[in-house]
Simulated assay, not measured.
Amino acid sequence: MPPDSADAHSIGVHLDRLLEARGLTLTELADRVGVTVVNLSVLKNGRAKAIRFSTLTALCRELGCQPGDLLSYLPDGLD
Rank of each mutant, 00 (worst) to 15 (best):
V13F: 06
E62F: 11
T25C: 06
K49E: 13
E20I: 04
G77W: 08
L56K: 13
A6T: 14
S72Y: 02
D16M: 04
A48E: 03
D16T: 05
H9Q: 15
L29A: 05
G23D: 12
V35N: 02
V42Q: 10
D76M: 04
Y73T: 11
M1S: 10
Q66D: 14
G34Q: 09
D4T: 13
A50Q: 10
H14T: 02
L71R: 11
L71I: 10
A48P: 01
L24S: 08
L56S: 05
L29C: 02
D69W: 08
L59W: 00
L15S: 08
L24N: 00
D76N: 13
L26M: 15
A6G: 00
C60W: 07
H14E: 09
L29I: 00
A58G: 03
D31C: 02
D31S: 12
P67M: 11
Y73L: 12
V37F: 04
S72I: 03
R52G: 06
L15D: 00
T36Q: 08
D31Q: 14
L70A: 07
D69N: 12
D16H: 10
T25D: 13
Y73A: 10
L19W: 00
T57F: 15
G77A: 15
L15G: 04
D4W: 01
I51S: 01
A48G: 04
S41M: 04
A6H: 12
A58N: 07
S54V: 12
A21E: 08
H14Q: 09
N39D: 13
D16E: 14
I51D: 10
P75F: 06
G68F: 03
A6N: 06
L59P: 02
L24I: 00
G68N: 09
L63C: 07
L59D: 00
D31T: 12
T36P: 09
E62G: 04
R47G: 06
L43N: 00
D4I: 14
V35K: 10
M1G: 12
R17K: 14
M1E: 06
L63M: 09
N45F: 08
Y73E: 04
V42M: 08
A48C: 07
R47Y: 02
T57W: 13
I11C: 15
A30Y: 03
S10G: 08
P67Q: 05
R52C: 01
D16F: 06
